[in-house]
Amino acid sequence: MKIASLYRPKDVEDALKVSRESTDTVVFGGGAWLKLSPRLVKRAVLLDDMDLATIETSDDAIRVGAMCTLRMVETHDAIAAIGSGIIVQALRQVMGVGLRNIATVGGSVMGKYGFSDVLPPLLALDAKLMFADAGEVSLASFMASKKRMNDIMLYVTIPRTKSVGFFKKVSTTPLDFSLLNITVCKTRDRVRVVLGSRPGGAMHQDVTSRLDLNTIPDEKTLDDVVREVLDAIPLGQNVRASKLYREQLAKTYVRRGVKEVMSREG
């Protein structure tokens, strides 16, 4: 990527206005993945001075600013306590510390990368995004939408609902992108399965209706859950794995994940 000029907006409105002026303008998070794009950026919009790098905790939610680095999130105690620590587990497997000190939550969300290990646990926990213009949007509908969100993300809100989680990244080495990532999360009234790196963007399926939330499911029930997930979430192939192998991974880890979260108190 070649960058011709930098722009530091004075406030959110300014940022929004500038970012919508031209397609040669790109809003930067950390910029680490953007760097790999071959395009020429006439104007890089930096949100560094806009006070978006804070994590605020309230009784029922944690609000993570878009400019927080992944490393800030992964080392935050309150975030580590959510969903058996699935957010932290997932983040710790994103490349190395040296990259996670650059990459931001906003960049990771707005990139909507198919290979993302950041989005699936947030989706499993039903996180919400706050945008400068569009206001609050659920991550689920953001993920489902094919439209490019021409907006400035301000923060993500993670509910502090009592929850139990499972996260598994399958990859050749810890530095590789996922062949598939599997997240399972149980709250008081819901069990959600998320498959990411399908290789497309993460998708979720709530399998609550198949399960009795107070008992450990039998093998037959687990079969049904796996079938429901595979029916609902399409898997495909790319250079890292075939569709068939992704299905095998999904069958194995959805089963293991559901079994694990159902066996634990949440």
Binding site: T172, T173, P174, L175, D176, F177, V239
Partner: peptide, 24 residues
């Protein structure tokens, strides 16, 4: 080393050509 149909490398960087890491 992986190639596409036209003979160009797919594994042309360290994101797509993996070597063992400390954790492995």
């Amino acid at each position: 080393v992986k190639r596409g149909k036209n003979g160009a490398l797919i594994s042309h960087d360290l994101l797509n050509y993996k070597i063992p890491t400390n954790v492995d």
